[in-house]
């Protein structure tokens, strides 16, 4: 029963990892950028929520209504003003700049909010659960997995069904050709970045409901999110969800041995995939 429980908790936890991975996968799929500040953006969103909830009296569960749009706008301008400039200088510059951004964000949060742990208080929901044949299903984990499914489906829908989404894909496939037919790639990259920023803000909110965050939390979730992308197969959004679930199960199963091993096992799975299946467990068939 312990194993069945760990398996189910792991699968549910996969939703959180997938939520982190979604934006990474999108940014890489569209403009081949890995944003090293991705995890820190999530943490910044969590801190914004911690400030906004007492200020606006909006329940913590609904605070995403304010935070996610704010981060989408931030993501668009961050792309236009900073990432795009570095992109014009070459891929190495983008890495350096996003890493710099990560350090700056972390230290700003540290200076403004101190290094103490913070979390979003969602009342009794945090511990509420029901059980099916002895397997515990916490409401919060199901909500987070649901949010991940909605976010992935929304991004998928945007990319495949809307005019702007198809233009984003066109720019990703062949920028020059897309420009010839009038696509403004800078604007479209901005939109992709806005989506990535919105989903990772959601991930940050989910994380701060699920556990505590502090200014140094970001990088480890960047790494988990990235591992989910690689395990799932580069550029495949639904593969990313499966990758997240593989990681989640590795984490909960490892925690049965001891908690520290639970933190380590997902990385070991990632390195094993890297060594033996570098294209991921679920290689992509269609473009994300």
């Amino acid at each position: 029963m312990t194993y069945a429980n760990a398996l189910v908790q792991g699968l549910l936890l996969g939703g959180l990892f997938a939520l982190f991975a979604c934006g990474l996968s999108l940014m890489f799929g569209v403009m081949e950028v890995i944003n090293l500040a991705h995890g820190d953006i999530a943490v910044a969103a969590a801190y914004l929520a911690v400030v906004l909830v007492p200020l606006t009296h909006i329940p913590a569960v609904w605070i995403f209504v304010l935070v996610v749009p704010a981060f989408m706008v931030g993501g668009y301008f961050g792309q236009r003003l900073l990432i795009q400039r570095s992109l014009d200088e070459g891929p190495v510059t983008t890495l350096l700049v996003t890493f710099g951004l990560s350090v700056v964000l972390e230290n700003v949060l540290l200076e403004v909010f101190t290094g103490n742990d913070q979390s979003l208080n969602i009342g009794s929901l945090v511990s509420g659960s029901f059980s099916v044949r002895g397997v515990i299903l916490p409401y919060l984990s199901i909500m987070i997995l649901g949010a991940a499914l909605v976010a992935l489906a929304a991004v998928q829908f945007f990319l495949s069904r809307t005019k702007t989404g198809r233009m984003v894909r066109a720019v990703a496939d062949d920028r020059e050709a897309a420009q010839l037919v009038g696509a403004d790639y800078r604007h479209l990259f901005g939109i992709a970045a806005a989506l990535a920023s919105g989903t990772v803000a959601l991930a940050g909110l989910a994380l701060s409901m699920y556990t505590t965050v502090n200014p140094n939390t970001g990088p480890s979730y960047l790494l988990y999110g990235f591992a989910a992308v690689v395990i799932g197969g580069l550029g495949s959004l639904w593969g990313t969800l499966l990758g997240g679930m593989v990681l989640g199960v590795a984490m909960t199963m490892g925690s049965l041995v001891d908690p520290d091993f639970g933190a380590m096992l997902p990385y070991l799975v990632f390195l094993a995939v890297l060594a033996f299946r570098p294209r991921g467990l679920f290689p992509k068939k269609a473009i994300a």
């Binding site: 090293l36 891929p91 983008t94 890495l95 591992a227 690689v230 990385y267 890297l274």
Partner: peptide
């Protein structure tokens, strides 16, 4: 590229 960067971090 970026994948190398993150893999070194994971290690």
């Amino acid at each position: 590229g970026a994948y190398f960067a993150i893999a070194t971090w994971v290690l």
